[in-house]
Each structure stands twice: as structure tokens, then as C-alpha cells.
Amino acid sequence: MNIFRLAGDMTHLISVLVLLLKIYATKSCSGISLKTQELYAIVFVTRYLDLFTDFISLYNTVMKLVFIGSSLAIVWCMRYHRVVRRSYDRELDTFRYWILLGVSFILALVLHEKFTLQEVFWAFSIYLEAVAILPQLVLLQRSGNVDNLAGQYVFFLGAYRAFYILNWIYRYLTEQRFTRWISCVSGLVQTALYADFFYYYFISWKNNAKLQLPA
């Protein structure tokens, strides 16, 4: 464990807690893409298949349970909570995410570390995570200005993966064997997808204006 990875995990945790706070406190999920939340739930479930078979550390196990639990709780809330579900932008959240699921799965069948069920699903979850934010970014574009909690959610989510890139650089420099090419390349693609959002987020923060994404 290094400081970059810890910072990344904490930022990731904050992004999830910000989202849970927004939904719980305001009893509203306007501006949040249910499709992105469902993709993240799939990412965590398929990535942590080793939850009960490989014990790495208490921290690792606890964080896996928190990520799986919170992502499923958010999806449940947005789908079934009688108050929250009314504020879901159903007609704006129309990204055809089956494409993302299909492409990620096919890529995982081709590119993986070992051809075992667990490894193929692990690679699938890595590729899927890289593109899972797309429905949310499209929803932010369509709903124009971003209410600040949704914007913060995306900001922390992008920052977490940027910290992980620093973590991979650090591990590449300090460990003799580096076997994280799948995560590393996918993480770079993921962070690049956030780059334009970060640009507009920074501009709006600098001008102290509401975040206006170009339509």
C-alpha cells in the first residue's frame, strides 16, 4: 500500500459517500445517471468475486464490502425508493449501455491475464469501469448546468483514478515485476474520459460560475 493508492481509495470512498449523502439528504437523484450506478454495481460485483476466497487484508475486505454495498444501495434507492425514484431523469438517462457491457465483455474474452472465470470477469470489470461514467457524463451534458453534488461526485470519481495512475507509476518504479498493464492502460483511458469534464469544472470553479457544459 502506498500513499497514492490510499488517497485514491479514500477519494473513491468520498465520491460514493457524497452520492449517498445527496440522495439520502435531498431524497432526490436528479442529475444522477442510474445507468452509471448500475454499471458500477456490476463493476464491483464482477471484480470482487474473490471476496470470500482470497483474504488480502482487513482493509481490502472491508472496502470491497463497502463498495459493493453502497453501489447496490444507490441502485436500489434510485429504482425502488418511492420518493427518490420520482426525481430520476428517466427521459434524459437514455445511454445504450448494453454496448458498453458487450464491448467490455468481448475485450475481456480477448485480453486477460489468465483464461479463468475469475480473471476474465476481473478484466471485464476493469474495462467496464473505464467507460461506466459515460452515461453520467452524457446526462450532465443534457441537463446543462450541473448541480454541485453531481459535479462533485464526478470530480472525486475522476480524481480517484488519477491517484491510481500515480500509484501504478510508483509501483512500476519500486517493484521488480509490474503486471498491471490491463489496469494501467484502462485507468488511463478512464481518466482521459474525465479530462474534458475536469476542464469545464475548473473553468466554472475559477469563474465561480455554475458549471455549464457545452450541449
Binding site: 500500500m1 488480502i56 481490502n60 470491497k64 463498495f67 491475464e113 491510481y164 503486471t179 489496469s183
Partner: peptide, 10 residues
């Protein structure tokens, strides 16, 4: 104490 696990990251 890093496990030799390939996937010790979240």
C-alpha cells in the same frame, strides 16, 4: 507486507 496476489488493489 504485500501479498503476491495479482489483484491486491481495489
Amino acid at each position: 507486507r504485500e501479498q503476491p496476489q495479482d489483484h491486491d488493489e481495489l
